[in-house]
Design a protein around this nucleic acid. Sequence first.
DNA 1: CGGAATGTTGATTATATTCAACTGTTGTGG
DNA 2: CCACAACAGTTGAATATAATCAACATTCCG
Lengths: 243, 243
Amino acid sequence: MLLLRGNHSAGIARDARLLEGVLASLPLFRGMAARQVQQVAAQSRLQSARRGELLCRHGEAMPGLFVVAYGMLKIALRRNGSEENVVRFVRAGESFGEASSLLDRPCPVDAVALEESMLAVVPAAALARLLHSEPIFARNMTGSLAERLLGLLQEFEASVQHSGVQRLACYLDSLAEPGALANRSIARLPATKTTVAARLGVKKETLSRMLRDLAARGLIKVTGREVAILDRDALARIAGNAA
Amino acid sequence: MLLLRGNHSAGIARDARLLEGVLASLPLFRGMAARQVQQVAAQSRLQSARRGELLCRHGEAMPGLFVVAYGMLKIALRRNGSEENVVRFVRAGESFGEASSLLDRPCPVDAVALEESMLAVVPAAALARLLHSEPIFARNMTGSLAERLLGLLQEFEASVQHSGVQRLACYLDSLAEPGALANRSIARLPATKTTVAARLGVKKETLSRMLRDLAARGLIKVTGREVAILDRDALARIAGNAA
DNA sequence: CGGAATGTTGATTATATTCAACTGTTGTGG
DNA sequence: CCACAACAGTTGAATATAATCAACATTCCG
């Protein structure tokens, strides 16, 4: 068992509690006895990651299920050199790597920390054991995988059938804070514009132009990563319309 | 229990056997006792479909898990009117609808029979029961969903990062018969060119032009739905290269 | 503070769509 | 069995969308 903060027993105890807490809050372990979750935690390890650190490279063996305790990751498909396409962001409390861990397949994507992050890593072997011994876990897992599948399908649909602006409009809407007045809101981009562009499946130049044009039409106002949404209805109309 | 061929008891018996055989051969039910599979079959029904028949429309309630006994389906995303994008073809022995049945969500896609087909339909409720009572089934289901997820991810990758010709080259290669000489083979398109175009994420005109150009370069020879692959290596090179 | 990373803007180009006209194929009812 | 309508496929020209290239501006950490 590798923990991070060396051999100070106080640090270890703190880490163990963190690990347990992170796992317990995951939908995957919902409904399981606290003792069971403790056992899983005992088989897992914590891993910290600095900004830009690669947690898992495409084609490498999958170390296991990653759960984000704090920080944020991007899951990206890479091609020769610098071109990449971000599939999704993984935020605190979310996980990735279920499918390839379960099937013991090499990692199909790159996972990169976008900021200082802390992760719990549950080894594939532990997952396999749980899958056989804990029916609740197996059921939770089917649910999670099914959710992920439908989500990816939706992503696929958006990327294939919507234009760049449509995807942007839709994405901004999904980021919009629920509060505030009906037609206005604030969206805070979760990463650099370049990375958000990759998430939307366009180049940074294209995103820049799209944002400029939406701003010129008075629908939004961009200030760094803050995007003030001035006319949410119009934005939704763009997101939904053909062309 | 609705069976198809009316009340002739011989027909019913035949249908019951067909149903059972179809389910038993499905990876999802691997490792389960014959008696269990029989029970599932008893809760399921057969459904025939003519060419072009819509089995399941986007947004409608999901009747359950569909398993193709014979024939072929396309799973497609539709947008206003006629535009569509084919996610995958479902052949005999394959299934679809696991995820949305399990989560009891509306059907995320359209499913259309491409030819005279016969399907087994396992109601969502039966799946839910199995998931709770049969640990083997739950495990099989995680495996199937994980496979599907990785497959979709790969599909996603291809569609986002490869150009039209690359996707075509890759697809032809995947259809190529393994036999014959090393560098030559035959690929038979599973559907009309228009549908294959939708599968590749391009319009029929674009597919037509791409095929013409590949033929002009001597890499393939097209005769109706038959595509003779004359230089498989060159094709693979196109599929793999950037641009 | 200074250099690297990030973002903007314009000009040009690549890729695929759309529109339109036409040809070929298929399956069905008279 | 043929005629004919519906569907499927081809081709060219014009167009849309976003990528690429290049130059410059800004921001952010270290």
